[in-house]
Nucleic acid binder design. Sequence first.
DNA 1: ATGGTAGACCTTCTA
Length: 259
Amino acid sequence: MRIATWNVNSVNARLPTVLAWVEMAGPDVLCLQELKCVDEKFPREALENLGYNVETHGQKTYNGVALLSRFPLSDVRRGLPGDPGDDQARYIEAVVETSRPVRVASIYLPNGNPVGTGKFSYKLAWFDRLQAHARELLQLEEALLLCGDYNVIPEPVDTHDPVAWKDDALFQPESRAAFRALKWLGFSDAHDVGGEAPGTYTFWDYQARAWPRNHGIRIDHVLMSAQAADRFGGIQTHRNARDMDKPSDHVPVMVEIAD
DNA sequence: ATGGTAGACCTTCTA
């Protein structure tokens, strides 16, 4: 079973690009981030016509996450627990119902810039809530995949220029420590297990000719529970998607999990 | 040195 994650930077602006990639790559499950629309404006029919079940957690203008699956989805959870006052749509989770089920979450972690503001503390607080929820999920002892745009550059090797990112929220020691702490609960990063080359980036800014210069960063991650890692068959970062017409600034990351 | 692009949307915010 192929499971992919992609920050599309507006699902409606990106619809032809998304449909073209989905038809080419054929993921069984697709986690989307940055829909930038409410549920009623999600292009549900176009994706259902490609054979997907659709669960969305949208928001006007900003954020928004979704899960698409060729298999039935059950036990759908919208929103990250731990703060009833948080109205940002950044988390959706469901169980993919196959002969060997997998629980999958589509995550859009807060960006956190600028550092030293409420946005950065919101990022760290959101990370704390994600860690608490992940701890609960791990107790289920299921195959579990936490997929999405974490807005964290884990290591210097995950950027073309660590110095250029030193003051950015994505590369702060606190952000990197929070990502490590999450992993240390007992997750494997598919990038590490899959042996992808250093410099496998997932995001290139639209500005300053970042893509032609390969000024990229790796911020889209797939974390696997032990039960999922046992079934892990490989990872592909679809770098070529950055060269499509009307590209997202992120590219899809796809993993294989044995059925 | 402090720009550069993209998207939603009402003028500026977010990334």
